[in-house]
Design a protein around this nucleic acid. Structure first.
Length: 623
RNA sequence: GCCUUGGUGGCUCAGCCUGGUAGAGCGUCUGCUUGGUAAGCAGAAGGUCGCGGGUUCAAAUCCCGCCCAAGGCUCCA
């Protein structure tokens, strides 16, 4: 519900003409002096719980009325405040209810008729509180009763092929793995009493000039600086290469969809309030919250044969939009616009789907290794699916344990409430011990039918099973995880840094004095020609200060060149990886050796050139 | 969205309780210094104290509303 409240000297209206939805009434004109006029639009979302809406609206209105010291209230239906209206019946009921309740509370109430064209005059008082707007939603802060059956959480005892149910009482002793324990506590809703500060990455994204909030956009939309843009693009390249090698076919689909399409409307409605919707011309549109829509529509139009399967389409959804609640937005962890690698795989049947699920499970885990961000794993299955495929699952879990030496959690849902019957989520634990949910694979048994995706098997048409997979989770969350892990390193006495292949500047060359600049420039050129991101600190200042600055920028290799190096034609290289806060680790080596070293270390990872001027003196400050 | 905390030069923060000429460090600029592994020296510039209203002779400071961020709640299909 949206309210526009105006403290007026007077309001008067006169109904002029009926609309199709006009209510029967003889109160066709009215006037009230010294009143609070409440222009009201009842919205679609309000139908979920009209009682709560009325309650909350009345509490707002009376609070304001008390503040303004008015006893006269006009309830005025005003559809134009919203583009997402409730049905006329519900809207009228709510307005009548508001009128009656206000009257019971002792206010003088005038209600303008619903569904009529009306002329009106209003005289707004114009003081600071004379014009206010409010938005009311059904959200009661989680107090409403959910009569859904609760799911149960287990730790998988691989040896005994046994599930150990986890409860608030036993989780501390049963789960040995600290990261997994953090995930289990989150799942069980156990809160630790400790006061938590701001997550480390929120500070880092600005300090390292990666990205920042864009105040001129909506909340949770970011601007990306050259260093951050580079990291994003490299991560995008990384997933692209990974997925294409795996057999995914890259596509690109629109970011917005027309809600007149039945399948899209159904899929979108399931997502509830958390989406961007708007009206443009005569169409109701929505912004995608994942790449499902475009890929499903593409698949619907394909003539799919069994031999194409499993058929994988991949897209980097730049962007996915989710209208998260205001207070839920946190740095790069929760956004309203984010970039998600999204792959959908058409599988002939459940057997093929499970086989693919396994492959994609391993692929997701590999990204954790490549990025050096270890994942904690939780499977989620419906009870039925789990019982039918118990053996398969235990085999998979056993192999995971052999490889990663870690346990897994499993959640069993008494009945299917989403489009999937099984999924796996992988989370990185941040510097404060909170999970960042990243990669996922889901087995979808609902969407093929809804979107009309068919496989032509002989003379039969069958609805396939579809897997959803994001091999890394959103790019923003990957960056979040990398920064959070960097902070954890710092807490454990290591210097924080990004993996070499993702470091915006890989090498910084520092000449000791003006006289060594030429030699330094030569070194920079050699490195550049070898596709290494290198810059030259040609600013004024001591060597000590430049070293410090390079450290602040988390530069993995810092090269100092002075008389000694020029004479011997070598470099003195400080390796961040092996240095600590107290002592820096240095090695003498030739340019060739440095190049070889970096090439070996970045092998198999994407490369993009430096996104900043080569001279530090020319690099602008963004923050 | 709700509750809590915060918003002061580009950055980090003090001042606010108890109203009376807006401070420090870093960064920037200028000059000196030409250097060897985490801040060389000196000087200068730089602020609508988040925004709007109110109280007051006087507001960064007190009051109200709003905006923005973080923490918590809820949520993450």
């Amino acid at each position: 519900m949206r309210l526009l409240l105006i403290h007026a000297d007077y309001l008067e209206f006169k109904a002029t003409e009926k609309t199709k939805i006009a209510e029967d009434t003889n109160k066709l004109e009215g006037r009230m002096e010294e009143c609070l006029t409440v222009f009201t639009a009842v919205e679609r979302g309000d139908e979920v719980n009209p009682e709560v809406i009325v309650e909350k609206a009345l509490s707002e209105i009376t609070k304001i009325a008390k503040n303004l010291k008015v006893d006269n209230i006009v309830v005025y239906p005003y559809a134009h405040l919203s583009s997402d209206l409730a049905s006329p019946e519900v809207a009228r009921e709510i307005l009548v209810e508001m009128e009656e309740r206000l009257r019971e509370m002792g206010y003088n109430v005038l209600r303008a008729p619903f569904g009529w064209y009306k002329s009106f005059k209003i005289s707004c008082k114009g003081h600071p509180l004379s014009e206010l707007s409010r938005r009311i939603t059904c959200d009661t802060g989680g107090k409403e009763e959910k009569d859904e059956k609760k799911s149960k959480l287990y730790l998988l005892d691989v040896e005994g092929e046994r599930l150990i149910e986890l409860k608030e009482g036993n989780v501390q002793e049963v789960v040995k793995d600290e990261d997994l324990k953090a995930l289990a506590c989150k799942e069980l809703g156990i809160k630790d009493k400790e006061e938590r500060g701001e997550p480390a990455h929120v500070k880092y994204i600005r300090e390292k000039e990666i990205c920042d909030y864009e105040p001129s956009s909506d909340h949770g939309h970011f601007r990306w600086y050259p260093k951050g843009k580079l990291i994003r693009d490299l991560l995008a390249d990384y997933v692209y290469n990974l997925v294409v090698e795996y057999g995914g076919m890259p596509v690109e689909t629109p970011v917005m969809y027309n809600l007149e399409n039945r399948a899209i409307r159904e899929h979108a409605d399931k997502f509830g309030e958390r989406q961007y919707r708007f009206i443009q011309g005569d169409r109701e549109l929505m912004l995608r919250f994942a790449a499902c829509f475009g890929q499903f529509m593409m698949k619907r139009d394909m003539y799919i044969l069994p031999r194409y399967l499993p058929l994988k389409l991949y897209e980097l959804s730049t962007y996915s939009f989710r209208y998260e609640q205001r207070g839920e937005l946190v740095g790069l962890k929760r956004l309203r616009a984010f970039t998600m690698p999204d792959m959908h795989t058409v599988c002939l049947d459940m057997e093929q789907a499970m086989e693919e699920f396994e492959h994609q499970f391993w692929m997701c885990l590999k990204t954790g290794e490549d990025l050096n961000i270890p994942y904690s794993v939780i499977f989620r299955f419906t009870e039925d699916f789990f019982q039918e495929n118990r053996e398969w699952f235990f085999k998979l879990a056993k192999r995971y344990r052999e490889r990663y030496k870690r346990d897994v959690l499993i959640e069993l849902l008494p009945e299917r409430k989403h489009y999937w019957v099984g999924k796996v989520d992988m989370a990185v634990i941040d510097s404060l011990g909170r999970p960042i949910e990243n990669p996922t694979v889901q087995i979808d048994i609902e969407s093929a039918k809804r979107f009309g995706i068919k496989v032509h098997q002989g003379d039969r048409e069958v609805y396939p099973v579809i897997l959803h997979c994001s091999p890394t989770g959103s790019i923003e969350r990957v960056i979040c995880a990398l920064l959070e892990r960097a902070y954890r390193d710092l807490e454990r006495g290591k210097l924080p840094m990004l993996p070499l292949w993702l470091s915006p500047v890989q090498v910084r060359v520092i000449p000791v004095s003006e006289a060594h600049k030429e030699y330094a420039l030569e070194v920079v050129k050699r490195l550049r020609e070898s596709n290494i991101r290198v810059d030259l600190d040609d600013r004024d200042g001591s060597v000590g200060k430049k070293i410090r600055n390079a450290g602040r920028d988390w530069i993995p290799y810092v090269v100092v060149v002075g008389d000694r190096e020029v004479e011997e034609n070598t470099l003195t290289v400080t390796l961040r990886e092996k240095s600590t806060m107290k002592s820096s680790y240095r090695e003498r080596m030739s340019v060739e050796e440095l190049i070889k070293r970096i090439k070996e270390e970045t092998e198999g990872h994407p490369y993009r050139p430096l996104t900043l001027p080569m001279y530090c003196s020319l690099q602008p400050t963004f923050k």
